[in-house]
Structure formats: structure tokens, C-alpha cells
Design a protein around this nucleic acid. Structure first.
Lengths: 229, 229
DNA sequence: ACCTGAACACCGTTCAAGT
DNA sequence: ACCTGAACACCGTTCAAGT
């Protein structure tokens, strides 16, 4: 497949057709670049590294124009990471809101939202939780995105403990184990698609049961709108 | 750092210094190529994709020579995957042998060997368990490397159940959850090195306790030679 | 202010030789 | 039998312009 020259695929603007942004509108290119990079990184079909030139091609701009808005390719990828990270947090927000007040229902909703995000956007999940890139920024875990997600997970676990919905235990320790399992759900499913995986809900419930101590009974009224469970 | 031309780093042969193998010794180049690729893939410092030209450079051969032994770059990577996969299985062999007859001790040793391999060779572990490459070969999970590791894990779990070292349960279901957690131990540790991770032994014991139901007491005489636990 | 032309050192891969 | 020379279409990045 290499050596096949597809300079301007149908539907994508080429550098010759695109008109420059007007003065004061320079940031629009920045947005377009991030969006294009995000689209290319989401594709889970092949495992090719992002090409800066492909991003520029999609936007209809010459490769060097990327450097007007980002120091290098890594900078562009970081902009994508931050956005998709915000997406994940919004998905968790929505899930918790819909789950209502029951602490164990909220925790279960959070876990399913985490896994759901990862399974729907495998490329982006890999970017957030499988690359060393996201561990390098900042002096410690505090400076790294991903800390907010863990903190929210921990909060949901703590509420279960406080409400005696789960047996007493160290919330940090429990949340850490739970995170390991949830990451496994997303990461191994992607790398071993041929394995006879049980449904995500089943796996999540087993983790919640074994690691947090939530009763195996499904919380009432939860996920009534998820078919096939 | 790019644009700096290092054609033949000190200690590496260059295409001009290397002498051709004698007749009948053509496979030696094949071995050298796999070894060089494996070395480059093990380096966890940066997350750069393997360069076929870098492999050839290390061996002191011209890039095209790789195609004498492998159909393309992916073929070379597959040869590395198979070898490192064999390493993992050997590490598990050794751990089980040393663990003795107690089923729970054997299972714990297996889990620690799995994590130990992943933490010692993060690049190789990522190759085996974080890339879609290893899930594509073969028509199902059966044709994929990784199935043997799971099968052995399942066997060790089954022995715990049979010996009543753990409460009754579905060995497949239990092993699946356990694998998710163990994968998380290796994978998240690598991608979030700033997180205040507890020691691997502690994490593994929590997973074994929560998911398999092994008693929290450390099996006697086990890992007496692992310091700091 | 917004963007491109030209250039450089890389990369995977092919095909036709050299010894 | 074992390996290389020359070539092609890629890639990230820099620097000096163009409108």
C-alpha cells in the first residue's frame, strides 16, 4: 500500500483550494489541526503513528503551517490529549448525573462510563492511558491528566464506604485495584479482540464485587436502557 | 535531535566493515536482525516506532537485506514477538517450579512472574499485550500468542479451586478478571509512572484476595528472597 | 498576520545488479 | 548464495520568503 500516492483524497481540501483565514482568525487553523489530528488518532483500524503531513493534508494546508500553532508534532498530540481527556470527564459527569443518588449505582455508572469511553474510542484511550507521553508531563502524578479521573473514582468509592454500601476499607487501595481492572477491560479487549470476552457489564460487576465488595445484585433501575445485558 | 546524522554509532558495525556470511550461514543474519530489533524495541526511554533502517544499521547491513529474511517490517516484529513470548512462558515455568506444590503459592508465583516480565521489559510487554498486531493473527484467540499464558493462568486458578484453597467459582471467569488486573498492574505503571503505586506484590495480593478469594495471609515460605516486601 | 517554497535528513520498499 | 546500488514516495523540521 505504500508508494501509492494519494495527495488529496476526495472530500479533503488541498493546499491549493483552501483560502487563508482572515486577520484575527488565525486560531481557526489551530482548531482545524487539532480536530484533524484527533480524527486520525481515533481510527483503530491500523496502528500507524500519526503523520503530521496527513493532518495538514486533511486541513488543506502545507505541513509547515502546523508549526505556526504548535512547537512540534508532540505539541499537537498533547492538544488532542487534553480535549479527549475533557471528553472522558464529561462522559463521567453525565453518567453520574443519570445514576442518581445511590452510591453504588453512581460508582457502577462511573466505571461503565470509563470503559464505555475506552471501547468507543480505542485510539484515544490508548493515547490517554497506554502511552508514556501522558506520564511525562508534570513533576508527578499531580501534574498529569488522568489524576482527575482517578480522583473522581476514588470519591465514588469513598461514598460507597461512607454509606456502608461496601465493607470498610482503604479507599485509595480499593480504587487503585479497581482502576487496574477497568484499564484491563479496555486495554486487553483492544489488543486481544479474539478472546471470548464476557460483556463489559459482567466484567465491571465482577470487579466491583471482588475489589470493592459491592453486592452482586444489580442496583435497581440502573442501566434499564442498555440492551443485551 | 532530528537532523543529527549518526550513521554508525561507536561499537556498531557499518555496512562497509561487516563481512558477508559464508555459504550456508545466511541464517545468521536473520538471527542478528531479530536480536537487534528486539534490543531496539526493549528500550522504554522513548516511544519511537521501530525503524527498519536502525535495525540494519545495528547489524551493519544495508536496509534492503532485511527483506532477504522477512517479507516486511511487520514480519521482523512478529519474529521478535514470538521470541519474547517464549521468554515470558519460560519465566512462568521457572516461577512455578520454584514455588513448589502449594496451589495458591504457585498461582501467586505465576502472577508475580507475569508482572515481573512486564515491568522488566516494558517495551516487549507492550508489544505482546498492548498492540492490536498480536490480536490480528489467526482466526480467533486460539491462533494468537497470549492464549498459552492465559491457559496456564487458568490452570493455576483451577488447581486452587480443586484444592479448596479458594472458594468455589468459575475458573474461566475468575482468571479473566485476574488477567485484567495483572495487565493493569503492568500497563498503568508504565503509562502513569508518577502515580504513587504500591509495590507490585501488594497489588497482586489484593487482586488474588478480591478476585480469586485467596486468603490475605502470605503463603508461608514464599518470596522469602524478595526484599522490601 | 497568515501561510508557502525550497531544502535537509530521515523512513519503508522495490528492482536490478554485484561478488 | 549472500548482499548492495540506485531509486521512489513517504516522513518531521527549519529557514527564508510570499501576499
Amino acid at each position: 500500500m505504500r508508494g501509492v500516492s494519494i495527495r488529496a483524497p476526495a472530500g479533503n481540501p488541498s493546499a491549493s483550494t483552501r483560502r487563508p483565514n482572515r486577520r484575527g482568525q488565525g486560531d481557526r487553523l489551530r482548531e482545524q489541526l487539532i480536530d484533524a489530528a484527533s480524527r486520525l488518532l481515533a481510527a483503530p483500524a491500523v496502528e500507524e503513528p500519526l503523520s503530521l503531513r496527513a493532518v495538514a493534508r486533511q486541513v488543506g494546508v502545507v505541513p509547515q503551517s502546523v508549526y505556526l500553532h504548535f512547537p512540534d508534532k508532540t505539541g499537537l498530540v498533547w492538544a488532542v490529549i487534553e480535549r479527549r481527556y475533557a471528553d472522558l470527564n464529561r462522559a463521567i459527569d453525565a453518567a453520574e448525573l443519570e445514576a442518581g443518588d445511590d452510591p453504588s449505582a453512581r460508582l457502577r455508572a462511573l466505571c461503565l462510563a470509563y470503559c464505555g469511553f475506552g471501547l468507543e474510542w480505542p485510539g484515544h484511550y490508548a493515547l490517554l492511558f497506554e502511552t508514556r507521553a501522558t506520564g511525562q508531563l508534570g513533576v508527578g502524578f499531580e501534574g498529569s491528566p488522568g489524576v482527575a479521573t482517578f480522583a473522581r473514582m476514588r470519591g465514588a468509592v469513598q461514598q460507597c464506604l461512607d454509606a456502608a454500601a461496601a465493607p470498610a476499607g482503604d479507599a485509595f487501595a480499593i480504587t487503585t485495584s479497581l482502576w487496574l481492572g477497568l484499564h484491563g477491560v479496555v486495554s486487553l479487549r483492544r489488543s486481544k479482540p479474539g478472546f471470548p470476552w464476557p460483556p463489559v457489564e459482567v466484567l465491571v460487576d465482577r470487579l466491583l464485587g471482588g475489589l470493592v465488595g459491592l453486592p452482586p445484585d444489580r442496583p435497581m433501575g440502573l442501566f434499564r436502557d442498555i440492551p443485551g445485558t
